[in-house]
Simulated assay, not measured.
Amino acid sequence: MAFIRFVIFGGGVGILAGFAVSLLAVFMPWALANAIVTVASTALCTELHARYTFRKGRGAGWREHWQCAGSATAAYLVTSFAVGVLHLVQPAAGTATEQLVYLGASGLAGAGRFVVLRLYVFATRSSRPVRRHGASAVPVQLAA
């Protein structure tokens, strides 16, 4: 069920982000527009995912925002790479083609982000992966 909520919130914001990038790219380089939109959409999604997707019962704290920033950086690199390759292969690509490539890359990056958010960022201590040392189990702790 969390994955469905992730798709609804993250995908909805992602679609809006795609339009925002296209609008901003009229006034600035595409990569800069993507960076600005990635920062804004990540902050919004982190709050939505804390409150609704993973039902933490509160908004996201600084730790969650910083950890989400790491996965958002990877998503930014994936989307920028995909659109950069498109511009190399088809320099006169239209907005619709650019959106298709951007949203496709965002979707792939989003699937990876779900795993990271589920297993590490918004996981409870008891649901985090356990690293085995000999006969005892030690919970894996992430640096804050």
Rank of each mutant, 00 (worst) to 15 (best):
Q99N: 12
A123R: 02
H87A: 12
Q90M: 13
L86D: 02
L103Q: 09
A72E: 04
S127W: 13
L100H: 01
V138Q: 15
T79I: 07
L88R: 13
G104F: 00
A82I: 01
A75V: 02
Q99T: 09
A92Q: 15
G107M: 00
T73C: 09
L117S: 01
T95W: 14
P129N: 11
S80K: 03
T124N: 15
A137Y: 14
F114C: 03
A111Q: 07
S71D: 07
R131E: 14
F114Q: 06
L117W: 02
A105D: 03
V116A: 06
S71I: 06
F81R: 05
P91K: 06
A105Q: 05
C68G: 08
R113K: 12
A96Q: 13
T79V: 08
V138M: 15
E98I: 07
R132C: 10
H133F: 15
A105V: 04
A74M: 08
Q67T: 06
G94T: 12
A75I: 00
A96N: 13
V85D: 05
T79D: 01
R125N: 15
Q99C: 09
L77S: 08
P91I: 06
R132Y: 11
T95K: 15
V138Y: 14
L108G: 04
V89W: 10
E98D: 10
F81P: 02
G94K: 11
R113D: 09
G104Y: 02
H87Q: 13
V130P: 04
S71C: 08
S127I: 11
A105P: 01
Q99G: 08
S80F: 07
G134S: 08
S127A: 15
H133M: 13
A74N: 06
L86F: 03
Y102R: 03
L103Y: 06
L88E: 13
V78I: 11
G112E: 06
T79L: 01
A109E: 00
A109N: 01
L108W: 01
T97V: 11
T73A: 11
V116Q: 04
Y102C: 00
G94W: 09
G110L: 00
A105I: 00
S106G: 10
Y120H: 10
T95I: 15
A72C: 03
F81M: 09
T79A: 06
G134I: 07
A69T: 10
H133A: 14
L86M: 05
Y102L: 06
L100S: 02
G84N: 07
A74E: 07
G70A: 09
A82W: 06
P129C: 10
R128M: 11
A105H: 00
Y102F: 10
A74V: 11
L77W: 07
A74G: 09
V83F: 02
A135D: 14
Q99H: 12
L77V: 11
A74D: 07
A109S: 04
G112Q: 00
A123F: 05
L100Q: 03
L103E: 08
H87N: 13
L119H: 13
G104K: 00
Y76L: 07
R125G: 14
G107H: 04
L119S: 14
L108T: 02
Q90P: 05
T73F: 08
A111M: 10
T124H: 15
R132G: 09
T73H: 05
P139R: 10
S80R: 01
S80Y: 07
